[in-house]
């Protein structure tokens, strides 16, 4: 066995002994035994969240709003219905509100009490969104936190932080880069990032 293989093996070994892994196995045995779920169904759902439910859904919504003024108006008026028009919905998306970034107003999303996040349009949240540092600081010093993400806002741009403390979930409609005039919906969707739809980044044209 080479040194690298040995190293990898040690990692696996550590992972097997993570107490949380052992506790999860015990919970799985119990819930399978009680008939709440099967191990095969668990695999299927994991795969769905790893491949289908993710920020590509939100990017489609944003690209359509950028190219279709009527859709944009419907999206800002009733986010849930306009997102459902694209066949997107599900858990943690019961009521969606879309907030629009402009040169004057910048919106950014957080959940300080847990880590609520609009799963149907963005998938599951990244680690930093769930981290105590983001949850505690973005409400108190949003400009400083955004600068740490590489986003420096003008002093006269108003910053609105949305703390999703009930069951309403928020999606940021980022500003369309000026240089993308004439680009089609699909090309635009490729530009839209998860971070821009949370509000910790802007979108630059490639």
């Amino acid at each position: 066995m080479s040194h690298d293989e040995n190293h990898e093996h040690e990692h696996e070994h550590e992972h097997e002994h993570d107490p949380r892994a052992i506790r999860t196995e015990a919970l799985e045995r119990l819930l399978v035994e009680q008939g709440l779920i099967t191990s095969a169904a668990i695999d299927t759902i994991i795969e769905r969240y790893e491949t289908d439910v993710g920020p590509l859904n939100g990017a489609r919504v944003v690209a359509k709003a950028w190219t279709d003024p009527d859709y944009r108006a419907r999206l800002l008026e009733d986010g849930t219905a306009a997102i459902a028009e694209l066949g997107i919905g599900g858990p943690q998306g019961e009521k969606m509100v879309v907030v629009e970034n402009t040169p004057d107003v910048h919106n950014v999303i957080v959940c300080t009490l847990c880590s609520c996040y609009p799963w149907p349009v963005l998938g599951l949240p990244p680690a930093w969104y769930k981290d105590p540092a983001y949850r505690s600081r973005i409400v108190r010093e949003p400009r400083k936190v955004l600068r740490e993400f590489g986003l420096t806002l003008d002093d006269d741009t108003e910053v609105r932080v949305w703390d999703s403390s009930a069951e309403i979930r928020y999606l940021v409609l980022p500003e369309r880069p000026a240089s993308t005039l004439g680009a089609d919906e699909e090309a635009l969707a490729d530009l839209v990032t998860r971070d821009a739809m949370i509000g910790v980044a802007r979108i630059d044209a490639r």
């Binding site: 002093d155 108003e158 910053v159 609105r160 949305w162 703390d163 009930a166």
Partner: peptide, 9 residues
């Protein structure tokens, strides 16, 4: 920080 707000549900 000036020009900031938090909206809470």
């Amino acid at each position: 920080e000036p020009g900031t707000s938090v909206t809470v549900d």
